[in-house]
Design a protein around this nucleic acid. Structure first.
Lengths: 197, 197
DNA sequence: TTTTTGTTAGACAAAATTGTTAAAATAAAA
DNA sequence: TTTTATTTTAACAATTTTGTCTAACAAAAA
């Protein structure tokens, strides 16, 4: 029973991730995914049995990746501000590569989502929130419910990238100029969240 | 040629809006919409000819509504901070009622979106951005590219509501508690965006 | 009342999409 | 080289969803 493992299975998953999470084709059909991967549509069923299971597989994989990296950041042995800068860098990089992943999560939350959300670890988040509360006492960040601090952070990180096409129109800037704006975000966000002493 | 106008057409549109933009059933079928509206599916085709045209109609109507209200806020004869507080109030109210509308825009941007985005008025936004630039000179808000200011504003407003189901899980709070958090947002956002002198 | 116009309903057709089956191709192991 | 298990393909079937057609129904106008 030697599995040949030609890499087709992973290739299909990677292609599906690109289509769905990077290019935003959230309703891509099995045919479209197969075509993009350069395989016969039946291969999708051979490896994943059904479209739903393929989707579930790539989503789980992507969430695993992301939440693991974030958890590493959050539990790292670092001062709070440096830690936050690191989270920003990691998350921004992810959002630039896969801007539609969160949107997918939200739109599919009623079907796939509910199950997958349940196994999100809230431990690392909790300890990060406690550190934030400490900082508020120290006065390095504004006093508020720690949940607000985290919502602010993720909002400022995610939303501009989710809405990129809209904002490019609204601000009448080119894709290149918008990229520059995005590159400035890390600094802007830190300045906004932390009191400059 | 007296149109009976039993209100069915608007009723179908309102139901579709509720399903898609409020409840987040972004792939609702014509059958589901018809059922929810309590009409025969044929009525949808009678009034709108096709599913696509129904969707286009409700989306255009919703965007018109929102952008008109925002434009009114942005061009109102008010000091900048009061104006911004007003934008926050209007936009928050809208996001609470129709949290999925923006998500829909993003996911459908490749099909319907592109056409509809083109007729977004950038005039009022431009003048609001100029006012923001003035405030930066005055020093009431942090100096940055004005686009960042607007992105910050909309990010802080929209994202927590888009991600509501996720955050409730992450913070382990009840729906009621989360509502309270949302009610605090307006104040939090103003505090974050404006330097407290 | 009859006619006209507008609205609703049921049955049917077409299209798009997913899923299944069986056979051919491929590559490693015996 | 033959065997064996795995991978890929083509043809077909089932399902879901959308769209059309025709007839029934309701209400205002002639």
């Amino acid at each position: 029973m030697p599995l040949k493992n030609t890499g087709t299975e992973q290739h299909i998953k990677d292609t599906a991730k690109r289509l769905l999470f990077a290019e935003g084709k959230l309703h891509a059909t099995t045919q479209e995914i197969a075509d993009a991967a350069g395989v016969n549509r039946t291969a999708l069923h051979y490896y994943f049995r059904s479209r739903d299971q393929l989707i579930a597989a790539i989503f789980q994989e992507a969430m695993q990746d992301l939440s693991q990296r974030l958890n590493e950041c959050m539990t790292a042995d670092q001062p709070f501000k440096a830690k936050t800068e690191n989270i920003i860098a990691v998350f921004l990089r992810h959002m630039i590569a896969f801007p539609y992943q969160e949107t997918f999560l939200v739109t599919e939350i009623n079907t796939l989502g509910k199950k997958l959300i349940t196994n999100i670890q809230s431990g690392p988040v909790k300890s990060y929130l406690e550190e934030a509360a400490d900082e508020m006492k120290k006065g390095t960040i504004e006093k508020m419910h720690p949940a607000h601090f985290l919502m602010n952070l993720f909002s400022l990180l995610s939303y501009p990238l989710i809405m990129a096409p809209l904002y490019q129109k609204l601000f009448q800037v080119s894709g290149k100029d918008f990229k520059e704006l995005v590159n400035e975000r890390a600094k802007i966000i830190i300045n906004l969240l932390f009191k400059n002493q």
